[in-house]
Simulated scan of single mutants.
Amino acid sequence: MSYTVNCSILLTDLPLLERPAAARAAGFDAVEFWWPFADSVPADRDVDAFVDAIRDAGVQLSGLNFNAGDMPAGDRGLVSWKGRCREFAENIAVVAAIGERTGCRAFNALYGNRMPGHAPESQDALAVRNLVAAAEGVAGIGGTVLLEPVSGTEAYPLKTAQDALDVIAQIREHGADNIRLLADFYHLAVNGDDVASVIENHADDFGHIQIADAPGRHEPGTGELPLQQWIDRSRALGYSGRVGLEYKASQEDPFAWLTSRPASRTGA
């Protein structure tokens, strides 16, 4: 089993640029991040510092989000956000440049919340245009755009795997094939999706898997979800990528659940 640590939600007691090294010290060889900057187009020195932190830690950047806005304030993406099209377009170029420098090839584009005063249909049309642009923007480095159902935000319209797959189908109709489902088993389960059925029918559509247990969004084993069973079945059906650890730590050692399988942190 090959895991990647989401350093935007884990190891948060450390400054962000120290987290890749902490993940490496904990035995992992890959990390992923939400957008790690305050702006869609950060200063070159800030990008350089982020890339250097990844390289110096000796880990692979396996996943990176496009800018999703002010996440603590409730924002969940710019893809369908009216009035921020130019900003999203500029962000695509930065994301692709970071991917080229780090070898990262998976990029999560959060869809964005429904906005008062705008028809959902117009937001969806904008999302299609922006997702096509994102897919085209990372295609040159062999990148893939990921689309994720999310829980906890009523205004976020993609809640089930099928919601995201319907959008993905539209993007592919525009000739952009490098877009896939990000199957976060926690979000799907909390939203009431039939995760086992999603795996049976769509494991070959997964571009990435992320996990957290429910209730609580904490470490595997702290809740009721059969996460290992779901991972094993996904792999049996052809999923060969990493599994993202995207949970909130509830223990001093957020990786203690893995201590009985130390080799599983970095390799199969």
Rank of each mutant, 00 (worst) to 15 (best):
V145C: 12
Y186G: 05
E252D: 15
A203S: 15
I141T: 06
G58W: 12
G241N: 10
D184W: 10
K159P: 02
R172Q: 14
E252P: 01
D70Q: 05
L78Q: 00
A26D: 09
G112E: 04
L17Y: 14
L182H: 15
L64W: 03
G58Y: 13
I179L: 08
D194Y: 01
G27K: 07
L10W: 07
F37W: 14
R24A: 15
D56T: 14
A263Y: 09
V190P: 06
P157Y: 14
G99L: 08
A43W: 02
R84N: 01
V195R: 07
G241Q: 10
E18P: 02
S260N: 12
G143Y: 11
N201C: 06
A106M: 12
A57M: 07
G103S: 08
M115C: 08
D205W: 00
V51A: 11
P116Y: 04
F50L: 14
C104N: 08
P157W: 13
V190S: 04
G77F: 01
D46I: 09
I199D: 00
F28I: 03
L11Y: 03
L258N: 06
I9A: 03
D56E: 15
Y111S: 02
W81V: 04
A189W: 03
E200W: 00
C7K: 00
A164C: 10
E87Q: 14
H202G: 01
D44Y: 05
N191L: 11
P149M: 13
G103Y: 12
V51M: 11
G83N: 08
Q60I: 06
E224Q: 14
E100C: 02
L14G: 06
V31G: 03
A133W: 01
F255T: 07
R101C: 05
R265D: 02
R55C: 06
T153R: 07
D194S: 01
A106R: 15
